[in-house]
Simulated assay, not measured.
Amino acid sequence: MIRRLETNQIGPIHYIYLFTQIKNQDKGFLSDPTSVQSMLEMHGDIHHIFPKNYLQKNGVTDKKDYNQIANYAMVQKEINIKISDKSPKDYLELLSISKEDEQSLQNFKDNAVPTELFDMDMNDYQEFLKLRRQLMATKIKDYYYSL
């Protein structure tokens, strides 16, 4: 399962992950109270958790590397604009998202985002992808067994 998430192609595995979020009534990344389902219905933004421009400025120029499915999350347009091209640890601080806040931690869980993101920058991108793929695969597996 994790191996199938090592792609930049939006396809069946990505849609299964989104179905999982819809079934669980998950909120979009950093987007409480808007659900993933609402965002999909209203054409919410697919956000790069490590912003594409941030990665490009730091030498990740291959589309296959920055457009990894594990780097995508549904987010409200207003939040996506605020995030801009900052590192995760910088935009989380800007948005006052704290790892001590239960609601923020639940949002990370809903979106299969590792809490290590609070301290991550460019040097941690590959580790982030690895951790997120594991969380996404677990979420998909749990969804499958709930059917």
Rank of each mutant, 00 (worst) to 15 (best):
A73W: 05
G28M: 01
F29G: 07
Y66C: 12
E102P: 15
N123G: 13
R133Y: 06
Y15I: 06
I49D: 02
Q25C: 09
H47M: 15
M39N: 00
S96Q: 07
Q106G: 00
Q56S: 11
D124V: 09
V75D: 04
Q25G: 04
Q25A: 13
Y91K: 10
S31E: 01
Q37F: 15
N67W: 10
F29C: 07
F118N: 08
V113H: 00
F19Q: 11
N67D: 08
S87Y: 05
T34W: 02
I16Y: 01
S87T: 13
N71C: 03
N24F: 06
T115Y: 06
P114L: 02
E127R: 09
G44A: 04
K109S: 13
N111H: 10
P12S: 12
D124M: 09
K63V: 09
K82I: 14
V60K: 09
P12A: 11
K99H: 07
S98C: 12
I79H: 07
K130Q: 12
T34R: 04
N58M: 04
N71V: 07
E78G: 14
M39D: 04
A112D: 05
D121Y: 01
P88V: 05
D124T: 04
M74H: 04
I22H: 07
S98E: 10
P12L: 09
Q126S: 09
K109P: 01
K139C: 11
S98T: 13
L131R: 15
H47W: 10
I81L: 12
E93V: 05
T20C: 15
N107K: 12
N123Q: 10
Y54Q: 05
S87M: 12
Y66E: 08
